[in-house]
Design a protein around this nucleic acid. Structure first.
Ligand SMILES: [Mn+2]
Ligand SMILES: [Mn+2]
Ligand SMILES: [Mn+2]
Ligand SMILES: [Mn+2]
Lengths: 218, 218
DNA sequence: TATAAATATTAGGAAAGCCTAAATAATTGT
DNA sequence: ACAATTATTTAGGCTTTCCTAATATTTATA
């Protein structure tokens, strides 16, 4: 059985290898895990010895099959609990991440699976991220940042790139919620800000915001 | 913020001081927490320094107000989660304790209170133990072991003394569940076993069982 | 009440997970 | 190609929570 710390390392390595490259380096990990590089090196050696990842000195790290499977299990729990908190306990989507950071480490497959069932086997968490199923399979959804869409193109808002508190609060404040249709009206040359339309209502958003909104375009 | 270990010590000290005497001794604690006495001594010193309990060398330990309040908070979480697992996720009452041992350490007052609300502010957990409210107040219920009742007396089964797996499974197997009426038909002189009646059905239970069934007698 | 038995504490050490400072390897710029 | 910069690892230490063995205190017993 793995410690909370070991689980967090695996989860973060998985996240980083998904988003950036295949091989993850020490300082990026240290930064994400709010720790220092010597601690990372030490942990990588330990996880390598446990055959959860391949680690080569100075070359970075890559999860192997078992490590990936454990990481997906933790992500599954994290997202199921977030869904529970929002759907059943009426939390806002910007409040659930920190609590799920604790709940994701509860060890009981039976609990996870029953929670899954209780929630109706959801495939997306409150932020639009896919929930791995019991076997660790993830439904891959084709999502484009709003910023990459063209003028007069329309799509459905299906997820956020950043789940930062402030960003989620901004979206709530402007009634931008998952599932709503967004159409690009115009793009400002000067600062790349966009004029968009939601429910016949037009307003402006910054480039930064547009890059963090994931859209589904038909 | 307290560690999981510190929380478990406070919880166990509270439980022992409720069930037996006021002052709890080292070896009993060590036994209950599955640790050794030097570890207990060490922890007691630490918790005393944090002003959560009063510890006198060789004299035992006693929670003070703040320590008791923390202990009650953990017990509250434990029993709320057990209720959640049984009421919402359809676990059996003999399966929930080990999972609640983990969940009781999740730190979020908001989560605890919303869970409480979601469950309809329950006052009893699945084993008939009272759930402290947000303020740490516990409803004290007058409960008598079935063994202390007399022949032809009748009462309602409202809780178990031991929550051991095997005992809970035994009760389930014999359809003895919380809320059911039990009448004592006769008591055997030889081994103190009892003949009881539930739903017009009569059968025998041992002295051991009768001592672990808490009854409410009008 | 002296001695034996029990209970409890102290001493010293291990493992896990973190840290800073120092050393080493890799990368970059000229 | 090589010096300077950056990234990574190693060395050595700290804290928490355990442990065993040794010592001290309390309680029980003769
Ligand atoms: Mn999250
Ligand atoms: Mn985590
Ligand atoms: Mn329990
Ligand atoms: Mn516990």
């Amino acid at each position: 059985m793995l410690s909370k710390s070991e689980e967090n390392y695996l989860k973060e390595i998985y996240a980083l290898s998904e988003s950036s490259k295949e091989v993850v380096n020490t300082s990026l990990l240290a930064n994400k895990l709010a720790t220092k590089s010597p601690s990372v090196t030490e942990m990588l050696k330990k996880l390598a010895k446990k055959n959860l990842l391949k680690y080569e000195k100075y070359k970075g790290v890559k999860l192997n099959t078992q490590g990936k499977s454990i990481a997906l299990g933790i992500i599954r729990k994290h997202r199921l609990w977030e869904t529970f908190l929002v759907d059943k306990l009426n939390f806002n989507w910007d409040e659930v991440h920190v609590i799920a950071e604790q709940l994701e480490h509860i060890q009981s497959d039976q609990l996870t699976d029953r929670l899954d069932e209780f929630l109706g086997f959801p495939t997306m968490d409150p932020h639009g991220d896919p929930i791995p199923n019991k076997k660790g399979q993830v439904i891959k959804i084709n999502k484009t940042p709003l910023f990459n869409m063209g003028i007069s193109e329309e799509g459905v808002f299906i997820g956020v790139k950043s789940s930062s508190d402030s960003f989620l609060k901004y979206l709530s404040k402007n009634n931008i919620s998952i599932g709503c249709k967004i159409k690009i009206i115009s793009i400002e040359d000067f600062d790349n800000s966009l004029k968009i339309e939601i429910n016949n209502l037009r307003f402006n958003i910054s480039k930064d915001v547009a890059q963090n909104l994931y859209m589904e375009v038909k």
